[in-house]
Nucleic acid binder design. Structure first.
Length: 672
DNA sequence: GGGAACCGATTAG
DNA sequence: TTCCACTAATCGGTTCCC
């Protein structure tokens, strides 16, 4: 059946062009009929929205690669010579940092979740089994892997590959228990070990090796036995001079490292994923780590400092050897997938649920944040994010939902299959402690100063003459004036309904100072109803039609909350009175005499904010006048909504003509 | 020009 | 029958304000 279809197609083997990660080698997948797996995955996916989106992404990647090839072709002989010199110098500098004095061990539990499930239900032994569900698999045991089934594969595809596959739902309580048992073993070898996940850890075993006069390999063997005795589970362990290579077994000898790394495919390196692999291979002909060094000049010419640095380090087999300080969490998020819908009532209800989930997690960690990011995945699998930063730190579900609703509202109408909320920019203070924006600003100042210093140190060793590389990013493509550029010149599209949204956000934020104070009132501490009723949804559309901001009732429905919200509304709609401003004859400012027609809504509001700010500045008792004026805030928010507007006109600015050299390498400087 | 905020993209488990 | 998750981190680009 499948063969016939393939034969009748234009291309004899169309699945070959469908790049998935499922055919990559993974433990237990040796001998898998890759072509068969690839074909089944293709046939199962073909025609779906997901598939179409993947095709779009691949087309963009091909375009990006073409673009890089074109840039590469533009380099003159002089350029190439220059960047080769840059690369050579950088290689020498990196080589000077090589540290062969440490021994790092990487422990990785074998098919962890599946193994734990088999331990608690021995009847699963020997049968193909996967932990997860029809939508996604977390782990597959080795019996299932022989069929091509693997982690991060949708369950329904896995079932096509292996019809007798047994599905076991995830049970994190169980995995956490076993994880703790393994960590007790790890602690014996390195009290400061780095846990990479529930089933993975990096250990600096240098001291243990010295104390016991044992080699890294011997310690690794002992640790594996110990883990097995304590948990009944098996694990793999690699040993190397640094964390970049700790998944392999290498001695602390430069030649051993270089010999090994040279023939190593780049995809084996942590931080190099599917996209980077394709770019390096198709644009530069780089497949092995050795080629990273051979083509170092090109990499320095066409990539950023840090990226080129990472590539050269990979070519040299140099990775991190220090034990980083325990870093605190930087963000917390919650997201949920559901059947795609454009029903606004339903979307607001789901948003309220997610806000509640996030709030619960925030409370567990005692966290407060001030930047809320709304993540959206459309019915066609396009992913977007929209963020807003508040002057004050917050963690209540009411506050989360308030900001989230504003962000979502700007995207409507839309058909979504996923929504998520992330809170970041944490306050170090715990919930319940008095909120003092001035103090927090100071904290932020100290933190950012530290970060700046760190970045400075990190980049100090880089050659400054690579700075001009950034020019390369702007070389491609022609320019035309688009919506965002119009925005830049202060020209607004009168037909853009989002101008109203700008106004909405503006109205709300211009009163943030007043509202923020109110939110701290005891009444706001009460838990509000999270579910938006149909009636309330009706109000949503009413407010939408009116082009005014969402009233707070829609963001929390308890009577206590309603009182507060009414007060908020008063502040929203009467801020002009509060600063004493009246538009004489609906035209002239009563305070300074400036003339502004009634339809200059936004400009009028900003003008009103100006007077309000002026007044607040005179009021020394106002803490907000010491940190950020309403004028400043309103401008910020205006920018936020402007950006949203731009995206709506041009959903993927990076996907169009402005194909610059994007960043590809997260984590590259962290773990290695 | 530097910094902050926002956004999209990549990676990993 | 089911039809591609969730959490976290990071980086480069862009825009805007000071």
């Amino acid at each position: 059946m499948e063969k016939n279809e393939n034969l009748s197609g234009d291309k004899p083997r169309p699945w070959h062009s469908y790049h998935t990660v499922y055919t990559n080698a993974k433990a237990g997948m040796e001998g898998v009929d890759k072509e068969k797996v690839q074909r089944i995955v293709y046939e199962t996916s073909k025609g779906s929205k997901y598939f179409e989106n993947e095709e779009k992404k691949e087309a963009l990647l091909r375009q990006k690669i073409e673009n890089m090839r074109a840039q590469r072709a533009k380099l003159s002989a002089a350029d190439l010579s220059h960047y080769q010199t840059v690369a050579d110098r950088r290689i020498l500098e990196l080589e000077a940092t090589r540290d062969l004095s440490r021994i790092w061990l990487h422990a990785d539990m074998d098919a962890f979740y599946a193994a734990v499930e088999t331990l608690s239900n021995p009847s699963l032994k020997g049968k193909p089994m996967a932990v997860g569900g029809m939508s996604m698999i977390s782990t597959a045991n080795y019996e299932a892997r022989r069929f091509g089934v693997r982690a991060a594969m949708p369950g329904f595809i896995a079932r096509k590959l292996c019809p007798e596959l047994i599905f076991v739902p995830t049970d994190f309580k169980k995995y956490t228990h076993y994880s703790e048992l393994t960590r007790k073993v790890f602690e014996k070898y390195d009290p400061n070990f780095m846990a990479a996940s529930l089933d993975e850890a990096y250990l600096d075993i240098t001291e243990v090796c010295k104390e016991r006069s044992m080699s890294g390999g011997e310690i690794a063997e002992e640790l594996r036995k110990c883990v097995n005795e304590e948990t009944g589970l098996t694990c793999s362990a690699g040993v190397a001079p640094n964390r970049l290579l700790a998944k392999f077994v290498l001695t602390n000898d430069r030649m051993a490292v270089m010999t090994f790394i040279f023939s190593l495919p780049i995809r084996k390196i942590g931080g190099i994923g599917k996209v980077t692999e394709h770019i390096l291979r198709d644009a530069f002909g780089i497949s092995t780590c050795e080629e990273m060094l051979q083509k170092g000049g090109l990499l320095c010419a066409l990539f950023s400092h840090s990226t080129a640095d990472f590539f050269l380090s990979v070519g040299l087999g140099i990775g991190r050897t220090d034990t980083p300080q325990v870093s605190s969490r930087k963000s917390i998020s919650s997201e949920r997938t559901f059947s795609a819908t454009d029903d606004e009532t339903l979307l607001y209800q789901k948003l309220a649920d997610i806000a509640e989930m996030l709030c619960t997690d925030m409370k567990k960690g005692g966290l407060c944040g001030r930047t809320l990011t709304l993540k959206l995945k459309t019915a066609s699998f396009e992913v977007r994010s929209r963020a807003v930063t508040s002057e004050k730190y917050f963690s209540s579900s009411e506050d989360i939902l308030k900001y989230a609703s504003k962000l979502l509202k700007a995207e409507l109408p839309i058909s979504l299959r996923l929504m998520g909320l992330r809170l970041s920019h944490f306050n170090e203070d715990k919930i319940g402690s008095p909120s003092d924006p001035t103090q927090k600003t100071l904290n932020n100042f100290i933190v950012s100063a530290d970060l700046s210093r760190k970045n400075l140190v990190d980049s100090k060793s880089l050659g400054s003459d690579i700075n001009d590389l950034k020019l390369m990013n702007n070389m491609e493509g022609s320019f035309s004036i688009e919506s965002h550029e119009l925005q830049r010149y202060g020209i607004r599209d009168p037909l853009d309904s989002n101008n109203l949204q700008d106004l909405n956000v503006h109205h709300c934020t211009s009163t943030d100072s007043v509202e923020a104070e109110k939110i701290r009132e005891p009444s706001s501490n009460k838990i509000a109803d999270k579910v938006i009723t149909k009636d309330m949804a009706g109000e949503v559309s009413q407010w939408k039609e009116s082009g005014l901001s969402l009233p707070g009732q829609l963001e929390g429905g308890s009577p206590d909350r309603v009182n507060q919200v009414i007060m908020d509304n008063e502040t929203v709609f009467s801020s002009e009175q509060k600063d004493g401003l009246v538009w004489v004859d609906d035209y002239k400012c009563s305070l300074c005499g400036i003339e502004m027609p009634p339809y200059f809504d936004e400009e009028r509001q900003e003008h009103s904010d100006f007077h309000l700010a002026e007044r607040l500045q005179n009021d020394e008792s106002s803490i907000y006048s010491r940190t950020s004026t309403p004028r400043q805030r309103s401008v910020k928010k205006d920018r936020i909504s402007s950006q949203s507007k731009r995206k709506r006109h041009k959903p993927s600015p990076k996907k169009g003509r402005h194909l610059s050299i994007d960043m590809f390498f997260a984590k590259s400087n962290q773990n290695f």
